[in-house]
Structure formats: C-alpha cells, structure tokens
Simulated scan of single mutants.
Amino acid sequence: MSTLTVNQVTASFTRAGGEQRTVLRDISVTILPQEIVVIVGPSGCGKTTLLNLVAGFEQPTSGDILLNGKQVSGPGPDRGVIFQQHTLLPWLTVGENVEFGLKLQGISPASRAVTSAEYLNLVGLSQYVDCQVWNLSGGMKQRVSLARALVTNPQILLMDEPFGALDAFTKEQMQTLVLNIWHATHKQILLVTHDIEEAVFLATKLILMKANPGQIAQVIPLDFGKRHISGESARSIKSDPDFIKVREAVLAYFFENDPGVSNAVAA
C-alpha cells in the first residue's frame, strides 16, 4: 500500500522586482494507506501550493516529497488530480472523457470501454456514457472528473476545492459519494477546501494551516466519515453535538488566530 511523505518542504517564489516570498515553510505530513487527509486554512496559507507540489506541477525550494519512497519530480499516473473546475474536454462525450487517460496509455478501445463503464457506474453516470459534457449539470461534470481521475488506478487522489462551485445540496451529495468511493476503492485522498463543515465531515486526518508563511498549526484525527460508511446519514452526523463541537472549535481557531478572518467579520 502506498504512503505519501512530505518532509520539511519549503516553497518560495520570486515576485516581480526580484523579491522572494516564502509561501510554505517546513511542511511535514504523512498520508498513510486509506486515509483522507483534508487541509483547511485561510486564503494565502499555501493549501493549493502544497497540493500542486504533491501533484508535481511545482517543485519545492527545499525538502522532499516521496510516494512509496520515490521522489516526486513531476506529474505522474500514480496521482489523480481533480480541480474546482471540471477541465473536461468539451468535444468528447462523457465516455470518451473518462477513457482519455487510458487512451494515452495505449489501452485498446475495447478494454477502455469496459474500464470506463466500471467507473461511470461507480459515480452513478452509466446512462450518460454517450452524452456531451455540456449537457451535464455542474455536479455531474465533477462526477465525470472523478471517474476520469480514478480510471487509471492512481495510488492517491488529489482534490483542490472540488465542490466549491456547487450548491449546498449537490455539494453534500458529492461529499457522500467521495466517502463511498473511498470505501470501495481504498484510495488515499488529499483534499483542499475552505469549507470547514466539509473538512470535518470527510477527514480521517484534518490539517489546520496558518499563513504568512504557510505552516501546519494542528493535526486532528477524526472519524465522522467512517460513521457515514457504517450507515449513518450525513444529516444525522452533521447535526450530532460531537460534530458541531469539532466544527465550532475549528472555526474558533481561525477566528482567534487569523486577523484576516476577524477583520473581515468586524467590517
């Protein structure tokens, strides 16, 4: 089983004019097999930068990122990435979008069709295989994105605000879908979100970050998502006093420790 290790990673970038800005400093975290690690923090704390480093889209200034002991030096099929916007190819059908990664790997058309059908069924879109993506709702497009990321069997899913553009009802549907897929596939998941309730609901390990520069402030183990897998409804869990207590404690941390949040509310 795969293990992702981020070891003392620092990321700095050069601004216009030559000034150096450190976005992340000394980040260390381990994602174990079958964990959902959720990163939450104020804007500008480097959440997306960290996910991009793990994806291989950017390189750290110092430190190491290892997947199964192998250095991450660029994008690879061992990491599936899902963005806030669906990034589907509009000239392809739903099925063709899901098959795209398999096509790049040289898989035969017959095998691609069988595998893509399996994952479209997993995300509840079997009947839409021949549809054009522009005919789908936002939530359905993200389901296709999820199937496309899973179809090449990556070791870990990287999700950057994947439900941020969805309405509250669809967002909760997608959250429960992610938990069900996590349970069915045993994938590791690294998810970035601004949504505190979403973070508390999904995470087996919740990472709270602080900004300027981005650093890990707290790591909190949680099991609310496992309760959903065991049969408890999302609404029941999210209205549970224990859930509310954790959610409010996380919110309180950011209100008390992030001046940007406090000033925005005061204004």
Rank of each mutant, 00 (worst) to 15 (best):
L32H: 14
I31F: 07
D26W: 08
K47T: 05
G69Q: 09
L50T: 01
L32Y: 12
I31E: 04
S43Y: 05
L32I: 04
S43P: 10
L67R: 01
V29Y: 04
T48D: 02
T49H: 09
G44T: 05
Q71L: 14
S43L: 10
T48N: 03
L66P: 03
L66A: 01
S43V: 13
G56M: 08
V54D: 00
T48V: 07
I36Y: 09
G44E: 04
S62M: 10
L51D: 00
L53W: 00
V29R: 12
T48L: 02
S28E: 06
S62T: 13
L66S: 02
L67S: 04
T30Q: 13
L51G: 02
F57Y: 15
I65Y: 00
L67M: 05
E58A: 14
V29A: 10
F57K: 05
D26C: 10
T30Y: 09
A55S: 08
L24Y: 00
D26F: 08
Q71I: 10
K70Q: 14
V29P: 06
Q71Y: 06
E58T: 09
L24G: 01
I39N: 08
G41K: 07
K47L: 03
C45W: 00
G41S: 06
G63H: 05
P33N: 14
K70E: 14
D64Y: 02
G56E: 04
C45D: 00
G41P: 08
V40I: 15
T48Q: 03
G44R: 05
P60Y: 09
D64V: 01
I39K: 06
V29H: 12
Q71C: 06
K47M: 02
S62C: 15
S28W: 07
F57N: 06
V29G: 03
E58I: 10
V54S: 02
G63A: 09
A55D: 02
L67E: 03
T61Q: 11
Q71A: 14
E35T: 10
I31D: 07
G63Y: 10
S62K: 14
T49R: 12
G41A: 13
K47E: 00
G46W: 04
I65C: 00
L24V: 03
G69R: 10
N52R: 15
G46I: 09
L53R: 01
L32R: 15
E35H: 12
T61Y: 08
